[in-house]
Design a protein around this nucleic acid. Structure first.
Length: 436
RNA sequence: GGGCCCGUGGUGUAGCUGGCCUAACACGUCUCCCUGUCACGGAGAAGAUCGCCGGUUCGAAUCCGGUCGGGCCCGCCA
């Protein structure tokens, strides 16, 4: 018989249907046995009265795969308003070992339980509440793709195995590559800039690898980045505007589609303004923070984590925005590929979302001669093999361009209000965890 | 890389100013009872030597050192 999904059962009242899925819960009440079956849509309840059918479940644990054929009966006492009666059970894959965790109950996300969370990820991801996080995540990337494709951005895939570190800065992983040393890409930055020379507008959603030994709630060694790069921009403001607009768009869509899920996950209420998102320069934030907290940070080149939280809190409470830009990084923070403002600051903004930096949004230097000069000033060897192909793109014509490196894991984390970025990741990688 | 905190049955905890701990409780598991459950309920059972190594002591889950693992903060970054 054709399979009926859990959510469709109530459309077949009085008829016989077959549902397939996993045993999610059984409650034996003597003459009555209730079982919940889980499939990709959710749960359906089955009432088993026949003793030989009940006996089929003896010794079988949560997770057993089975098919159940029975008659759909409308009943207010049933969770979905309808349930299967007089069922015949067919055990497809019997599970006899007791699962190490209780899948049918909400999985603890307390910091001290994170290790257990990931140790049993294979099983706890079967929990319907846990699954919401990753359905929300999937919606984010779907809406991001939609948004960018509508604006003629071409999705690209760039290599993660590289000969040389690209950007410099963050530590890279080294690995043996047929006797040579290869590194894992810490960013697709060079490639996406190169691709501006072909498509003008490109994006990639892929993994980047950072060998930083950071043990914080916002770092993982394998992260999912959305990288965007667009050519022929009028200036930094255009790039800032695009990233802000995209973020507002996808947040609104996700909050709309997943309203119930977000509520059950205790996600914060979304606060966005219709006009431009609040924007402050790094210097302004340093000044505001120093004044408000009496902690002098005016010599810092970047924002401290506490400043990020402070300015975000200010933006949310005073300006009604969960998003805020920190722009005009001091000259000392600039890299050779950055474009600089007339006042000497870097044309680079950080997008902060609920206290955390989720994206860096810079404008790039596109002039070949100027690039060479900035590289030399940074003490780099422009003849080095690692820059050869990158510089080709500039030598043979790149327009003014800019884009962003955008942390998808952090976006999901902060949307839901998760304490740790790892909670927004299916199988996080950190200093010590390479499994599962 | 620096700092602070934690490590007890399958899971989550209590105990931790040393002896009453031959380690307690909840969930889960197993057996039995229960016809409307949905964190079902009731009766009973099994299951940890307290991360690991060493030390102090008549005696350690409890104190000390080391080690491994975990969490959080800072640096750095998405």
């Amino acid at each position: 018989m054709k399979r009926t999904l859990s959510s469709e059962v109530k459309e077949h009242i009085g008829k016989e249907v077959t549902v397939s899925g996993w045993l999610h819960k059984k409650r034996l009440m003597g003459g009555l046995t209730f079982i919940n079956l889980r499939d990709r849509r959710g749960l359906v309840q089955v009432l088993v009265e026949d003793k030989t059918e009940v006996e089929k479940l003896r010794g079988l644990q949560i997770g057993t795969v089975l098919s159940i054929t029975g008659t759909v009966v409308e009943d207010d006492r049933s969770p979905g308003g309808a349930e299967l009666h007089e069922p015949t059970l067919e055990i497809l894959t019997a599970v006899t070992d007791e699962p190490p965790i209780e899948i049918d109950k909400q999985i603890s996300h307390k910091p001290e339980h994170l290790d257990t969370l990931f140790e049993y990820r294979v099983l706890n991801i079967r929990n319907l509440h846990e699954q919401k996080i990753f359905k929300i995540r999937a919606s984010f990337t779907r809406y991001i793709r939609e948004y960018l494709q509508e604006r003629e951005f071409v999705e690209i895939d760039t290599p993660k195995l590289l000969a040389e570190p690209t950007e410099g800065g963050a530590e890279v992983f080294k690995l043996d590559y047929f006797g040579k040393t290869a590194t894992l890409a810490q960013s697709p930055q060079f490639y996406k800039q190169i691709m501006v020379g072909a498509f003008e507008r490109v994006f990639e959603i892929g993994h980047s690898y950072r060998a930083e030994p950071s043990a914080t709630t916002r770092h993982i060694t394998e992260l999912t980045m959305l990288d965007i790069e667009m050519g022929f921009v009028e200036g930094h403001d255009e790039v800032l505007a695009l990233v802000a607009d995209m973020t507002k768009h996808v947040l609104r869509r996700v909050y709309e589609e997943h309203a119930a899920d977000l509520k059950s996950l205790n996600a914060p209420e979304l606060k966005l303004t219709d006009e431009k998102i609040p924007q402050f320069t790094i210097a302004e934030i340093h000044e505001m923070y120093t004044k408000a907290t009496k902690t002098d940070v005016t010599d810092e080149k970047d924002l401290t984590p506490d400043e990020e939280r402070w300015i975000s809190d200010y933006a949310r409470k005073q300006l009604g925005s969960d998003l805020v830009y920190a722009t005009n990084f001091p000259k000392a923070a600039g890299k050779f590929y950055h474009k600089f403002n007339d006042d000497g600051t870097v044309a680079w903004g950080d997008l902060l979302f609920r206290g955390l930096e989720i994206a860096t949004v810079p404008l790039r230097e596109n002039n070949y001669e100027k690039m060479l000069e900035q590289m030399k000033n940074a003490g780099l060897d422009v003849e080095h093999e690692g820059f050869k192909h990158y510089l080709q793109a500039f030598k043979y014509g790149l327009p003014v361009h800019g884009g962003c490196g955008y942390g998808i894991d952090r976006l999901v984390q902060k949307t839901i209000g998760l304490n740790n970025v790892k909670e927004a990741t299916l199988f996080p990688r950190d200093l010590n965890r390479l499994n599962p």
